[in-house]
């Protein structure tokens, strides 16, 4: 089973994504803060993919991606960021920091699974 790490400070987003992903047969680990996610990754947890919000208090999504990419086991992991429909600038910054792609909030389940099929081996 594929593991997906979710990072978002909104418990609502985490709960809804988890619901969708688990129904789709993915194992989900959810973190409410990027710092927690980095601790998990440092501690040896190795997801097949990471989905992260960008706008978060404390460390933001861009800084999180940059930090995660520095961890050798995370060099190649697909990382998707959650953005708004008008977040072109953010998408570009996220791509530059090492994100694979983005999902526009709120994420429709079909779109999510489409993207997972495309990005996740």
């Amino acid at each position: 089973m594929k593991n997906i790490l979710l990072v978002d400070d909104s418990a609502t987003v985490l709960a809804s994504m988890r619901q969708v992903l688990e129904r789709g047969g993915y194992a989900v680990e959810a973190c409410t803060a990027p710092e927690l996610a980095l601790t998990r990754l440092n501690g040896g947890y190795r997801p097949d993919m990471v989905i992260t919000d960008l706008n978060m208090p404390g460390m933001d999504g861009i800084a999180f991606i940059t930090a995660a990419r520095r961890l050798p086991p995370c060099r190649f992991i697909p990382i998707l960021v959650l953005t708004t429909e008008s977040g072109q600038v953010q998408r570009d910054r996220a791509k530059a920091a090492g994100a694979t792609g983005w999902l526009v909030k709120p994420v429709a389940p079909e779109k999510l699974f489409d993207v997972l099929r495309q990005v996740l081996a």
């Binding site: 190649f76 992991i77 697909p78 990382i79």
Partner: peptide
């Protein structure tokens, strides 16, 4: 290093 697999 952005998690892309172009062939995929």
């Amino acid at each position: 290093f952005r998690g892309e697999d172009p062939l995929r």
